[in-house]
Design a protein around this nucleic acid. Structure first.
Length: 453
DNA sequence: TTTTGAGTTGTTCGA
DNA sequence: GTCGAACAACTCAAA
């Protein structure tokens, strides 16, 4: 009996997995496989490469060691594997990103040549991108109306428990070895894989969601869910999370706030679905006409956390230390690059994608476009983050800054945000501010004026 | 078709 | 220190 092929991509779990359930329904055993595709592997930085290896290692164990690894262009590799095993169907969760859609169309074509079907079942989202439309049948371009329609549309219950699929008969085939882990230096990553994702989720749902609304915006506090990276690799599906939230009786505003964050993830995936080019180009095309500065030495100083603005430098150093930045600080550092240094958002977005372990194309690119003012719900032109007041407001005791900027570790309390006001502010060798924020803010506003119609 | 209300996350200035 | 107003004009969603 030939096996049913199950092609894992960004759905590295066994529970709540409709494509897996569909594969089980066939008569044969299930052969799980993953293709290391150089087009995705090469541009990923060390954190994402390491995470993928660890997550695949965990998945392989959950598949009784039968996960098959192959290398190369899926257009060649997948048909070759299907032919090798005489399979007639390849099951997969649909990929909604620009590259994935194009790749899957090409793979489906190649499979058709040898009489094999590619069955795309389910998506990485509670509501598939392209599903929520406004009264005119067009996609939403503003978050709030989208979120109302998204909630009204609703989503299915989780597909099946892990327990229900423990009886899967896994097929066997030759596998190549996983790549070696890249050098992470001192970087520590949280545990990867489905079991770790579910453990983190249950802990968050039990304890942390109650204070989520108040604590999520303070970078010095451990108040976020930490689930973004698990969602990125599909170690847990948002359906599972939404069902858990719905069962929570006394979650207060935290439940609602967290549901809103999941909705943002779906909204940006929807925007990217309708406008794949927005992964690279300005969603509002007039922004391409704005005056920008080349990404030279100043961009390099931003990347390495040497701008002289404490919370900006703390964020950029956290990125390389942990492969992650707190969401509030992502906005602050992004605003600084675009509006104080006048560098195009794409440069920052690329650096983020290289170093973020949770780097998700839709959320990352559209978060950047939002800050730049060129995206959906564009920030009003006058909304320029002040890195100093943001630091004082959201990290009032300077805990976050001192944690990541060693040169400021001896400054007490809020003084860490304003070393220029402290007699020993530069005793640790911290760099001077590279720009005058007030002047750059006015410059940014002037540049916006120039592209107005 | 026209109209109306609303739009994640801010900052600064002056009273 | 605290507070409210001003900061423009535009696009979008829905009635």
């Amino acid at each position: 009996m030939p096996p049913q092929l199950l092609w894992f991509r960004r759905d590295l779990r066994l529970s709540d997995h409709p494509a897996l359930l569909a594969a089980i329904e066939g008569d044969g055993p299930v052969l799980p496989f993953f293709v290391i595709d150089p087009k995705l592997w090469d541009p990923a930085g060390p954190p994402r490469q390491a995470w993928l290896i660890r997550s695949l290692t965990a998945l392989a164990q959950d598949c009784d060691g039968r996960l098959v690894i192959r290398y190369g262009d899926p257009v060649d590799v997948v048909p070759a594997l299907a032919a090798e095993l005489k399979a007639d169907t390849v099951f997969a969760t649909a990929d909604c990103g620009p590259y994935g859609r194009t790749r899957d169309a090409a793979v489906a074509d190649a499979l058709t040549q040898i009489d094999v079907r590619l069955e795309r079942i389910g998506t990485p989202y509670a509501v598939g991108p392209g599903t929520v439309l406004n009264g005119s049948g067009d996609p939403y371009k503003v978050f709030t109306p989208f979120s109302r329609a998204w909630r009204e549309h609703g989503w299915p219950a989780p597909a099946a428990s892990l327990k229900a699929v423990e009886t899967v008969r896994w097929a066997k085939a030759d596998s190549e070895k996983l790549p070696g882990e890249p050098d992470l230096g001192a970087m520590q990553l949280p545990p990867a894989g489905e079991a770790a994702a579910l453990e983190r989720w249950h802990e968050f749902l039990e304890d942390d969601v109650n204070d989520y609304a108040e604590r999520r915006d303070q970078p010095g506090v451990d108040g976020t869910s930490g689930l973004s990276v698990h969602l990125k690799y599909g170690e847990v599906h948002p359906r599972t999370l939404l069902a858990g939230l719905a069962r929570k009786r006394s979650g207060g505003t935290g439940v609602e706030t967290f549901r809103g964050e999941l909705c943002w993830r779906e909204f940006y995936a929807d925007v990217l679905w309708h406008k794949p080019a927005s992964a690279r180009e300005y969603l509002r095309s007039e922004f391409a006409r704005m005056r920008y500065e080349p990404a030279g030495d100043r961009f390099e100083a931003w990347c390495q956390g040497r701008t002289g603005f404490p919370i900006v430098d703390a964020g950029m150093r956290q990125l390389q230390a942990e492969g992650w930045i707190h969401n509030r600080v992502r906005m602050i550092v992004a605003s600084f690059l675009v509006k104080d240094l006048h560098v195009e958002w794409q440069h920052g977005a690329r650096w983020f994608m290289r170093w973020l372990r949770d780097g998700d194309l839709a959320s990352n690119q559209h978060g950047w476009q939002w800050v730049a003012g060129s995206g959906t719900d564009a920030a009003p032109y006058f909304r320029v983050f002040n890195p100093i007041t943001q630091g004082l407001k959201f990290d009032p005791d300077g805990v976050y800054v001192r944690r990541y900027v060693a040169e400021l570790s001896d400054l007490p309390g809020a003084a860490a945000h304003e070393p220029w006001k402290h007699p020993d502010g530069y005793a640790g060798g911290y760099p001077e501010r590279m720009v005058d924020h007030a002047a750059e803010r006015l410059d940014a506003l002037a540049r916006y004026q120039e592209i107005k119609k």
